[in-house]
Structures are given as structure tokens and as C-alpha cells.
């Protein structure tokens, strides 16, 4: 922001951002079985980047995001929509019929990969992207 950022805040933000982003992804992945999911994960991620924005400035937060949040919104919507048509194309089932695959991932072992999870990833990206679009736009207008 315009005023001099505090050293404690900036140091904390530097450490907290990766933790919060990791945590948000953790929340997203476990959301199907325990509290969490795309909405909550996306919001946690967004608060991490917002904290970063306040500690530094909007361009730093934009750089930390790596992807234009607007692109993220669009991509999220596409992913969410496509997750609904997987069943349509593969098995000729109605829109949004859930699909499940057992996938073997090294270290983690058997994992459940599913179209609802892909959908939730889309939700995560839309939530994160939308909140960041709003926050960044407002912060940039401020500067």
C-alpha cells in the first residue's frame, strides 16, 4: 500500500503465503471427506494473497499469483463445465454424472480421482480468481 509496509508484516507475509496456499490446496483436496472444498480453499488462498498485497503492493501480489486472476476465473469456469461433460463424452451419460477413477500415485498410493474433484478445482480457481480480481482491481485503483 502507499504507506511504508512494516517489516514484521512483510516477513510474516513472505512466510505465510506459501503456507496458506498449500493449506488452501490441502483444504480443496480433503473437502470431499472433511470440512473444506473449493469455496473454502479458494477463500483461504485469496486471504493469503491479500495479506501479501497489504504487506507489499499490488504488483508484488500479481507477480506472486503468476497468473492473471481474470484468466484464472475463465479457466476455472471452463474446467468446471468440462468436468460435467466428461461422462457425456465417455459414457453418453447426462451432464454432470460423476465419474470415478482409481489412480496410483507414487508415495500417496491409491487415490480417488473424480470428476467432482475436477469440478471442485474449477470452483477453487473461480473463487480465488474472482476475489483476487476484485481485491487487486480495487487496490490498483487506490494506488
Amino acid at each position: 500500500m502507499t504507506s511504508m509496509p512494516s517489516l514484521i508484516l512483510s516477513t510474516a507475509a513472505r512466510v505465510l503465503l506459501p503456507l496458506l496456499v498449500l493449506f488452501s490446496i490441502f483444504l480443496l483436496l480433503r473437502g470431499h471427506d472433511l470440512p473444506g472444498g473449493g469455496f473454502i480453499g479458494g477463500l483461504v488462498g485469496a486471504s493469503g494473497y491479500t495479506l501479501y498485497l497489504f504487506a507489499f503492493d499490488s504488483s508484488a501480489a500479481r507477480a506472486a499469483l503468476r497468473m492473471d486472476p481474470r484468466t484464472m476465473v475463465g479457466l476455472g469456469l471452463v474446467i468446471a463445465t468440462l468436468s460435467g461433460v466428461i461422462g457425456t463424452f465417455v459414457r453418453g451419460e447426462p451432464f454432470f454424472t460423476s465419474q470415478w477413477w482409481e489412480v496410483y500415485v507414487p508415495i500417496f498410493g491409491e487415490m480417488k480421482l473424480s470428476s467432482p474433484l475436477i469440478f471442485d478445482l474449477g470452483v477453487y480457481m473461480v473463487v480465488l480468481g474472482s476475489v483476487m480480481t476484485i481485491v487487486l482491481t480495487l487496490a490498483e485503483a487506490e494506488e
Binding site: 469455496f39 477463500l43 474472482s130 476475489v131 476484485i134
Partner: peptide
Amino acid sequence: VLTAIVIAFGVLAFAVV
């Protein structure tokens, strides 16, 4: 309610701006 909370935020941001 969960989705309503998040959407309310979006709508609020829109209204405020």
C-alpha cells in the same frame, strides 16, 4: 448457505464499487 455467503461477497463488492 455456503454458496450464498460467497456470492453475497461478490455482489457486495459489485455494489460497493
